[in-house]
């Protein structure tokens, strides 16, 4: 470990500070509840369903995954959430209702995403 004071830690510190600041800004901007009503259910990069929460009837969608597991998506009173899943950790179920544009409900093991539809983005 060289004893001479190095500028490298300071440079790193600044980079880390910038990363943190930008992320914080994006989080604060992105986590507001959205006005959008159009929701997509995406599996493996393919859009399976597109639903309009404003007009969608209360329903349950059972989506089978390639690996034999499954997810139960539930729409109730204009809100969409994961009711149940065949995976052990239930992370997606615990995420609750889909609210923010930048926080899609993601099921990693079954490669399923529920998100607000974004114009032009895949």
């Amino acid at each position: 470990m060289p004893e001479t004071p190095s500028k490298k830690p300071v440079v790193l510190l600044v980079i880390v500070g910038i990363v943190f600041g930008v992320s914080l800004l994006l989080v604060l901007l992105g986590l507001r509840p959205t006005e959008k009503q159009l929701v997509e259910i995406v599996q493996d990069g393919q859009v399976l369903y597109t639903l309009d929460l404003a007009s969608a009837e209360d329903q349950e969608l059972r989506i089978e995954a390639e690996n034999g597991s499954w997810n139960l998506v539930c729409i109730r009173d204009g809100e969409i959430f994961m009711q149940d899943a065949g995976c052990p950790d239930h992370t997606c179920v615990n995420m609750g209702v889909l609210r923010a544009e930048n926080l899609p409900i993601v099921c990693l093991p079954n490669r399923l995403v529920i998100r607000f539809a974004q114009g032009g983005q895949t």
């Binding site: 992320s23 989080v27 990069g45 899609p104 993601v106 490669r111 995403v113 983005q121």
Partner: peptide, 22 residues
């Protein structure tokens, strides 16, 4: 996650994770 799920949707998670990760 982007590679395995073939979607960039998860990218919006990154800022959240970076703040909590820091």
């Amino acid at each position: 996650a982007i590679v395995l799920m073939r979607t960039t949707a998860v990218l919006t998670y990154l800022p959240v994770l970076l703040v909590s990760g820091c």
